[in-house]
Design a protein around this nucleic acid. Structure first.
Length: 419
RNA sequence: GGAGGCUUCGCCUAGUCUGGUCUAUGGCGCCGCACUGCUAAUGCGGUUUGGGUCACAAGCCCAUCCCGGGUUCGAAUCCCGGAGCCUCCGCCA
């Protein structure tokens, strides 16, 4: 939900944001109009209610002779109030709808355009040169680490079992990520993967990407696609203390994605799956510090990539490819030798006050109560990272090299070999 | 799943039976001022949140007593529905 004051003061900035996102500029004017209509409706209902209050108080004081007349007037006024309140409610609903339809106002400097219009910020490491590289599905099967066949048998396409060293690899990655996050001052959190509708709506996932989300109809709950959702909801309807900011959480949870509209994409292996586990960084921070915090989240993501000894690049995602909550997004893409391509492994977004407004999260400081910014960043999306590790660190003899940082969590193993 | 109790502006609490300055009482905490070598104590004042008007000030106005409806000129208070918490019973791990 964008700041309506910003909209009123500088509607052109919001229009410009819509333009670089490739979205409808007229939504801005719809929102402006809805805002004006609501303000007028509120003013009218307020003043009628005020009159009614005064009049109804005078009923008790009225003498028996004047009472019938006063009552008659009061009754009439009560009808007017009722009508005005109905108008007010309708104007409120219209404003809300228009408000939800406008995505966050992008940060200055975000590249315009769509998926292919990203700007390359950095390239790290040298992609390994491998003769006839195998992909992670083949390697994972040989190591008895990934069982996609039985995943499909039991749960359907885009499901898998991690077994043996594969299961251990997940635990190792999660432990490594959690250790790094904890050392950086994040509070480790195990978060629920099912949330209520208002939380899902508040984080902005029921907008353009609603088709991506699993819903449990019988229970009116959603399966989260990332622990960003429960971590954003964690402080919903709360007034935080500015002294406590930034609040940083590292959430571990399972993540569920319908992958609607990605038919035929990455059908092999565990790069694109309906369920995976993830450690996500989440920050609540003062509005003025959000841009710096975004850079810090990116730095922590890079630190983790470095620990995994992967060749990767960092991109500044174009406006049209941002989620509705984000003002800016940086992705880290790691090298997959079997695909001869960089593929997204982590992603960090600055959501400024978009989520906190929807979720009613504020902070109290010396200057009173004000908005807070929320930001998120992936530390490790386990399945895809395992896929990358197997692919990237495969050896000619079929074994897989274990990055030094991961070894303590794998009983000191330096290579993974078939059991 | 069954029975009962509870939910008031940070926390605790008065008020609900008997609808009308409830424009919500008091305490704790917090903020400011005064007093005092310092601290503490004491005294005085302030302290829900959101919205409208407006300069995003002050002031004024509206809403807010778990949520949603209803009755009424008027609801914290009466009626209906829902949620959450607690206790007991049942069931399950």
């Amino acid at each position: 939900m964008i700041d309506l004051r910003l909209l009123r003061d500088d509607p052109d900035r919001v229009r410009a944001s819509q333009r670089v996102r490739g979205e409808d500029e007229s939504l801005v004017d719809v929102l402006l109009a809805a805002f004006d209509i609501r303000r007028a409706a509120v003013a009218r209902a307020d003043s009628l209610r005020g009159e009614q209050k005064t009049l109804s108080r005078s009923v008790a004081k009225a003498s028996p002779e004047e009472r019938p007349a006063v009552l008659a007037r009061a009754k009439h006024l009560a009808d007017e109030v009722k009508a005005a309140e109905a108008d007010e409610a309708a104007a409120d609903a219209a404003l809300r709808e228009a408000h939800l339809a406008v995505p966050n106002v992008v940060e200055e400097g975000v590249p315009p355009g769509g998926e292919d219009d990203f700007v390359l910020l950095d390239t790290v490491g040298t992609p390994p040169v491998i003769d006839a590289p195998k992909d992670h599905t083949e390697i994972g099967a040989a190591l008895k680490a990934i069982d996609t066949e039985r995943g499909v048998k039991v749960s359907g396409p885009r499901f898998y079992f991690l077994t043996g060293i594969g299961a251990q690899l997940e635990l190792a990655l999660v432990n490594l990520a959690m250790a790094q996050a904890t050392e950086a001052g994040f509070v480790p959190v195990i978060a629920p993967a099912l949330v209520k509708p208002d939380i899902m709506l508040g984080t902005g996932f029921l907008g353009a990407h609603a088709a991506e989300v699993y819903k449990l109809e019988n229970d009116d709950l959603y399966l989260v696609g990332t622990s960003e959702v429960p971590l954003a909801g964690y402080h919903s309807n709360e007034i935080l203390d500015v002294k406590d900011l930034p609040l940083r959480y590292a959430g571990f949870s399972s993540c569920y994605r319908r992958e609607a509209g990605s038919y035929g994409k990455d059908t092999r292996g565990i790069i694109r799956v309906h369920w995976f586990d993830k450690v996500e960084m989440f920050s609540y921070i003062g509005v003025d510090d959000a841009v710096d915090e975004h850079r810090r989240l990116l730095a922590w993501e890079r630190e983790f990539m470095d620990k995994l000894e992967l060749a990767y690049r960092v991109i500044d995602v174009a406006a049209g490819d941002l989620g509705s909550s984000a003002v800016r997004k940086f992705d880290i893409e790691a090298w997959f030798p079997s695909q001869r391509a960089y593929r997204e492994l982590t992603s960090t977004s600055n959501c400024s006050t978009y989520q906190s407004r929807r979720l009613n999260i504020r902070a109290r400081g010396p200057q009173g109560i004000g908005p807070v910014a929320t930001l998120n960043g992936t530390l490790v999306a386990v399945a895809r990272t395992i896929a990358c590790l197997l692919d990237h660190h495969q050896q000619p003899d079929g074994s897989v090299y274990v990055p030094a940082a991961l070894r303590p969590w794998l009983g000191g193993r330096e290579v993974l070999t078939a059991p």
